[in-house]
Design a protein around this nucleic acid. Structure first.
Lengths: 204, 204
DNA sequence: CGTGAGTTTGACCAGTTGGTCAAATCCCGT
DNA sequence: ACGGGATTTGACCAACTGGTCAAACTCACG
């Protein structure tokens, strides 16, 4: 294990390579389906060498998860109480969709965890995420009460946004296979914008 | 391996118990994350005894998958070209949602596979599923052309239905944690009905 | 250069896993 | 109750996996 002095050039490079490789491997095979050897090879290192930089397979996973969760919720946090309600929501949808396009591995890593019962994420979900959802659900509710957007169950509204946008990352293989030549991300932004505009625009 | 004569009472019982146990285990740990011992114990058998009924772990998985795929697409097949368009779609959404409530393990099993790149499912997706989607997408398109429902990309419309309904099974842990006491399936049917009604009801 | 910390690796270990096999036991029809 | 096929199991194996370790090598820096 490298000393926790300021990291050397080599340490920075290798730790980054390991995390990058681990993201690839974990997101496509899940935690238990991935082997340290696989990650090491993908990072261009030997297994003992990899374990020189991280104390264990789980440590790699945890660091990856922590890194991911830090940025994953940013789009939701950015939902602005001062903004124009409908436009705020539509912008949130588009930000989320863009994350599915730009960081599909992160999305799949998260999906893998949740589908399997989130054994390593329960605290975060019940903690930070829950607080944030509660806050934003109230914001949505207040917008509905003020007649700025149509009424709908606020939490289900949030779930639907997550579901629809992350679907393009998590089910990428299926979506692309069924779309053939057409790139799913060509029509997706417009489809989702239309969907939420029709759903939420107040009826005169 | 039992002879392929007509199965005995014991064979029927044990094969059923194994598949039931395997569905439980595979859907929560994925293929590689599950062990034969785990499945055997969950089925109340010893490992060698389980392997007396199925030649391998993969054979169990394949049988489970084949069984699943048979019924998974029935709701979509039932989309009736002769029916009232909007009501047909809304009924499809509700059927799909009900499947997420009644067979969440099947949904998660499928999700696990797709998220991990569908290594064992590519043919089915590119084959039967693709044909069915093509057919139903055209049906939706014809309903739009006839002005029976609002315009939207037909395939993305189908994706959104799958995504929204299966989310309640696949992300069950997250959804339930964030909803607290409230049962997600209380409000979900109405939320989805509202969503698709607002989206698809033709504007005068 | 040289020297010591930083880096890399081959060999190794213990636990797990999918799967086999012969022997033991159970069950059913006669 | 008994014979033979159906069922069950303990013991076992080879491959794999996460992780260790001491020895070797490399690099930055005086």
């Amino acid at each position: 294990m490298p000393k926790d002095r300021s990291p050397t050039r080599i340490q920075k490079k290798n730790r980054a390579a390991i995390l990058e490789a681990a993201l690839d491997v974990f997101s496509t095979h899940g935690f238990r389906g991935s082997t340290v050897d696989q990650i090491a090879k993908a990072a261009g290192l030997s297994k003992p060498n990899l374990l020189y930089y991280f104390p264990s397979k789980e440590a790699i996973f945890n660091e990856l998860m922590a890194e991911l969760l830090g940025t994953w919720l940013d789009p939701l946090r950015a939902l602005d109480p001062e903004g124009e309600p409908l436009e705020e929501i539509l912008a949130y949808v588009q930000r989320k969709l863009q994350m599915s396009r730009d960081f599909p591995r992160e999305s799949r890593l998260y999906a893998n965890e949740i589908v399997q019962g989130a054994p390593r994420l329960h605290e975060v979900i019940a903690g930070d995420l829950s607080d944030l959802v509660e806050e934003k659900a109230q914001l949505l509710q207040s917008w509905m009460d003020a007649g700025k957007i149509n009424r709908a169950h606020p939490k289900h509204l949030l779930f639907s946004i997550w579901s629809l946008t992350q679907h393009y990352a998590d089910f990428d293989v299926q979506v692309r296979t069924l779309m053939g030549e057409e790139d799913p991300f060509d029509a997706a932004p417009e489809y989702l914008e239309t969907l939420y505009r029709r759903m939420l625009t107040p009826k005169g």
